[in-house]
């Protein structure tokens, strides 16, 4: 799935990274606890979270993720946007809640565990 599709499915807006939304993503995970993301996630590309601080961006950077979706209308601040730019991570924001956003992506074929479905 392309990041553009993630954006469309979640009716999200691009906070940063418009020129990178053609990139493909193969997996995703959703959590507000960064250590859980760091523990269980392998070869993931999209992080969905309701947490908004610089550590979210750094966590994604550590995991080589390419896109972060902020749920529940959370908006990252300028400092976070700068960090995302440095790391080349696309930032999306959606009004949807974490569970719903994850469900929508999952049912459209974006899996949890680093494997492509179907």
């Amino acid at each position: 799935m392309k990041i553009t599709t993630v954006k469309e499915l979640l009716e999200a807006k691009v906070v940063w990274g418009e020129e990178l939304i053609g990139k493909h993503v193969y997996s995703a995970c959703g959590s507000d606890m960064m250590s859980d993301v760091l523990a269980y996630v392998k070869d993931q590309s999209v992080l969905l979270t309701g947490l908004v601080n610089s550590q979210v961006i750094r966590t994604a950077e550590m995991m080589d993720m390419v896109c972060i979706v902020f749920v529940r209308s959370k908006v990252p601040n300028q400092e976070m946007i700068e960090l995302a730019k440095e790391s080349g991570i696309v930032l999306l924001a959606t009004d949807k809640r974490l569970y719903d956003a994850c469900g929508i992506l999952y049912s459209n074929g974006l899996c949890g565990n680093g494997v492509r479905r179907g």
Binding site: D32, M33, S35, A39, Q55
Partner: peptide
Amino acid sequence: LGFGAGMGLP
């Protein structure tokens, strides 16, 4: 802040 789940050292 997203940490303190007791997963760091593991």
